[in-house]
Design a protein around this nucleic acid. Structure first.
Lengths: 164, 164
DNA sequence: ACGACATTGTTGTCCAGGTCAACAATGTCC
DNA sequence: GGACATTGTTGACCTGGACAACAATGTCGT
């Protein structure tokens, strides 16, 4: 791996007499990036995630775990495959997510009597308690987001993105 | 790591006589998730990234690499630290990104004469050529996004998110 | 001029997530 | 009964983000 490391760029003179403005341009041009919506969506998404992660960290819950708890609670007896497609994550990924939640006693996997393959997912009482706390924290996070965006913009964004 | 694996959930009867609706709820409730803007922002961001990744994959360029090329091109002689803060990525992360781009002969790291610590970043002619192709592909991707969102919504979103 | 301190690029390491292939158990359909 | 699909699971790989440490270099106060 570390065989061909320091290659090229061996201080070649080229025309380095030209100043090339090595000093900071102070204001940095984003050029064509300004035309790409995805660029700004990503910046917002990073901010939101950062804030939500920190907020939920106080009860050791990740955003992904939070969404899992929410959806299980709202759809008792859901199977893992259904949950995976609902949250748009891979079955394989979900398995490990659920494993940690089960270890912590927040969820149960009950074997479905009707279909031997499926696991019916449920929250334990502790799971419901944690979810309640997570919800409060998430609401707190959302208020921070509204404050950051402005209530009007927040409302409009929610409306525009809801049915995507 | 694999010591305490198969624990709990040992088919405890509890009250599994209750039907708990093991069959698919067919329509899955997202519950409180519907009130969180970040949830929808994330879904959009995933879609955009997915599409952009696939689009740029034809020239073996990642979205991150694309943004690096764009910003270097628009700000010649930029230092790595400046570029990192401009793109909101870690200095450490940027080092490895630039390393690959340098290996491929797309960028140069020139030692700044004024400040021995800094590297002045530039695109090579090949780098500019690749950037031109990447731009065309990215524009193509953006058209797809506009088609997906509707021109009006796209324009409004861009306006609302630009100054975040 | 000297030393404390900051900055820059770099490397290593850890962890979370996404992706893919394979597999056993189970269900479905002809 | 046998071909096929689905479900949960595991293993492996790769990318990215986060953090600590470090050497080289620059800056600033005294």
């Amino acid at each position: 791996m570390t065989a061909t490391r320091r290659v090229g760029t061996a201080a070649l003179p080229l025309r380095s007499a030209v100043p090339i403005r090595c000093d900071a341009p102070s204001t940095i041009a984003r050029d064509v990036l300004d035309g790409h919506l995805g660029y700004f969506v990503r910046r917002l998404q990073v901010w939101v995630f950062q804030d939500l992660i920190q907020t939920l960290a106080t009860i050791d819950i990740s955003p992904a775990q939070f969404s899992v708890l929410v959806v299980i609670n709202a759809n008792r007896g859901l199977s893992q495959a259904e949950l995976a497609t609902a949250l748009a994550i891979e079955r394989a990924r979900l398995v490990r997510l659920l494993h940690r939640l089960e270890e912590r006693g927040l969820i149960q996997r009950l074997k479905s009597a009707a279909d031997g393959r499926r696991h019916a997912l449920r929250l334990t009482p502790q799971g419901r308690a944690v979810l309640a706390r997570a919800r409060a924290l998430a609401a707190q996070h959302e208020r921070r987001l509204i404050e950051r965006l402005g209530a009007k913009r927040h409302r409009m964004l929610l409306q525009m993105l809801r049915n995507f």
